[in-house]
Design a protein around this nucleic acid. Structure first.
Length: 291
DNA sequence: CACTTCCCCTGCAAGC
DNA sequence: TGCTTGCAGGGGAAGT
């Protein structure tokens, strides 16, 4: 599940495949809520455009185009961005994967989950946006056009600040976990890194955010910054579908301390890790280390 | 405004 | 074996 680190790693590795290139052809699947801009419009308006830059805000990727328009991509839960020369079994459907001989590297062919394909004038490898669960989003903003999805985002979570968190928490009573997942508070935090940061800060996810102390807000902010930075360094978390654009798995899943470790021993105190649903999301914590 | 619940979708694993 | 059920979850919309 791509959160800030996975999106940032994706950005860094797909950037050279996009920036400076002019789009020659656009293929899409049919209309669906995946396309906030209807696919027909997308095809019409993207052809002939040159991609000038690719940057990230929270979990969004934004590509600025030569005419001042902007392509906005969100990977959702299972979104993958990669080029046609990348190789990874994670780019393949289960059936295609099962048909592989051991050690065989299959070529990727756009399948029914490949919702957007960009071909370039210079003949560079095509870039695909594949998303099995279709929770991802594609939106083309006209020059000067804004969108609440972007406008509402809080500061990037890599710059999490304890004082600012405390400020944003005023008047709120939701569980601190839900608070951290609110993209208006911080942009980029998802389920994995919220749990990991709360563990490292020693705060239970279910605690009301109005009961979090100043010191704890500082600890949470520091934990978020370091966990997110570390995850980027290790290539992100490859837990289910995530794989970087060049087909390389991330390694941060090996450094998880609570996420997905329900029933396993806490690495600090050996108490079994607990799982509890908070705000419709599974949350993992150590009942002994987190108060 | 704050907060909760529901829902979009598909693949996989567990249970019968 | 093959079916059903449950679960994963970002985030918007609607409801309280």
């Amino acid at each position: 599940m791509p959160e800030l680190p996975e999106v940032e790693v994706t950005r860094r590795r797909i950037e050279p495949r996009l920036v400076g290139r002019r789009i020659a052809r656009v293929d899409t699947t049919g209309p669906s809520y995946f396309f906030l801009t209807p696919p027909r419009q997308l095809r019409e308006r993207l052809v002939g455009r040159r991609i000038e830059s690719l940057f990230r805000r929270g979990k969004y990727l934004l590509a600025d185009l030569d005419v001042g328009s902007r392509l906005l991509l969100h990977l959702g839960m299972t979104g993958q961005l990669f080029s046609s020369d990348a190789r990874s079994p994670r780019f393949l459907s289960a059936t295609a994967r099962a048909a592989l001989a051991p050690g065989e590297q299959a070529n990727f062919r756009p399948d029914k989950h490949t919702h957007l394909a960009l071909a370039f004038e210079d003949g560079a490898p095509e870039v695909y946006f594949r998303d099995v669960r279709k929770f991802g989003k594609v939106l083309l903003l006209e020059p000067g056009e804004s969108h609440p999805r972007i406008d509402r985002l809080g500061p990037d979570a890599l710059e999490a600040d304890g004082g600012l968190l405390r400020e944003s928490a005023r008047g709120r009573r939701a569980p601190v976990k839900s608070f951290l997942l609110d993209q208006r508070v911080l942009a980029g935090v998802g389920n994995i890194y919220a749990d990991e940061a709360l563990f490292r800060a020693g705060v239970r996810p279910g605690r009301g955010v109005h009961r979090v102390t100043r010191r704890e807000f500082d600890a949470i902010a520091a934990a978020l910054r370091s966990v997110l930075r570390r995850s980027i360094e290790t290539g992100g978390s490859s837990i289910s579908d995530y794989v970087s654009p060049d087909g390389e798995d991330g390694r941060f899943q090996d450094e998880r301390r609570v996420y997905g470790r329900t029933g396993e021993a806490c690495l600090e105190c050996a108490t079994p890790i607990r799982r509890r649903v908070i705000g419709q999301r599974s949350s993992h914590y150590c009942p002994a280390c987190q108060g």
